[in-house]
């Protein structure tokens, strides 16, 4: 029984959950407005975009790949979709999603093609395409902001479920963007766990040669992984437009590493083959809670990066020490007494 409890505690998800609870209780004791429905729903809304991005990053990471171009892909999708919807296509929110997913998938496939065809390190390719996508977009748009965004995109973030009314008359509740995030998370979780294509991503990340030997087409899988990564970036793009209702060319650039850090903190292995949707969600939420706590505790937001960096370093150091212990205990030879 004791052993079982220890086993559960060793799981990354449980550990993250406990850390989140501990931080929440601490902040709650200092600032009672923390554990309120209003605050929590706001925190969730604030991290929904990163949450959606992280799902794509998770899939790529599990496959043993690496992607820093997803934000650039989202940025390109934002521009292209809004431009199309304003000038060329009578649309609604579904068409917007379809277009964004299309654009995202195409750019993702371009990544996948380069990585697979030229057998290049994913980090090099995606740094290149990140600059390429972003640069071309900036040149074409000349960095103009688009203030005029189709109004039918707004409800996605303003609509709420389980809404309640605050004392000052403002309505609050779980935003549909958050619902979108969780719905997508469930789909990705089902995909990763219960479909053969999803499982084959774990196979590829765990042992690419062995995966080939049991009949997995690595080229197809690589294209699929980066295609999905791009598609999810496209979805995040629409969600992002809906929240800020403007297209700002550099509003989310630079958040790549934060998202990747959240995924890693959530237990995904940078070498591939390991990672879970639940862990990723918890990783994203942990970062969001820290950010929120700083505000509530009236600590300068400059401290955010210090905490995040500290947590990342602490978690990987603990992990490394655990591994070292394990390898020390390994029995190599059965020595007679």
């Amino acid at each position: 029984m004791k052993k079982q409890i220890l086993e559960v505690l060793k799981k990354r998800e449980m550990l993250l959950f406990l850390i989140i609870v501990a931080i929440s209780l601490f902040v709650q004791s200092k600032s009672p407005s923390f554990l309120t429905y209003e605050n929590i729903s706001n925190v969730l809304k604030a991290c929904s975009i990163v949450g959606i991005f992280s799902l794509g990053v998770l899939i790529v990471t599990i496959s043993g790949g690496f992607d820093v171009s997803f934000v650039a892909i989202a940025q390109v999708s934002e521009y292209l979709v809004v431009w199309l919807l304003l000038r060329h296509i009578q649309g609604n929110i579904y068409i917007a999603f379809t277009l964004a997913i299309l654009v995202g998938t195409l750019l993702g496939l371009f990544n996948g093609f380069l990585i697979d065809h030229y057998k290049m390190p994913a980090i090099i390719i995606t740094i290149s395409t990140q600059n390429l996508f972003y640069g071309i977009m900036y040149v074409i748009t000349e960095g103009r902001l688009l203030y005029e965004v189709p109004q039918y995109l707004a409800p996605l973030s303003t609509n709420k479920i389980f809404s309640a009314v605050a004392a000052n008359g403002a309505e609050y509740g779980i935003s549909t963007v958050t619902v979108l995030w969780f719905a997508l998370a469930i789909i990705v979780a089902i995909f990763l766990r219960y479909t053969i294509s999803g499982r084959s991503i774990y196979l590829m990340g765990g042992n690419s040669l062995a995966a080939q030997r049991i009949g997995i087409n690595i080229t197809k899988s690589t294209l699929m992984v980066y295609g999905i990564g791009g598609a999810i970036a496209g979805i995040a793009a629409i969600a992002h437009i809906s929240i800020i209702m403007t297209v700002i060319p550099n509003s989310i650039v630079g958040t790549e590493m934060d998202t990747i850090a959240a995924v890693i903190l959530g237990g995904a292995s940078i070498t591939g083959g390991v990672g879970s949707v639940l862990g990723t969600i918890l990783g994203v939420i942990l970062f969001a809670i820290i950010n929120n706590s700083l505000t509530l505790l009236q600590i300068s937001s400059s401290w955010y990066n210090v905490f995040i960096g500290g947590i990342i370093l602490a978690s990987i150091i603990i992990n490394a020490l655990q591994l070292k212990q394990q390898s020390k205990r390994k029995v190599r030879v059965k020595v007679e007494a």
């Binding site: 590493m257 850090a261 401290w303 990066n305 210090v306 960096g309 500290g310």
Partner: peptide, 17 residues
């Protein structure tokens, strides 16, 4: 990759502080 990512965030944080 992980270690320096963590160090990057930490140093940037300290600089910001």
């Amino acid at each position: 990759l992980l270690e320096t990512l963590g160090m990057m965030t930490l140093l940037k944080g300290l600089s910001l502080v």
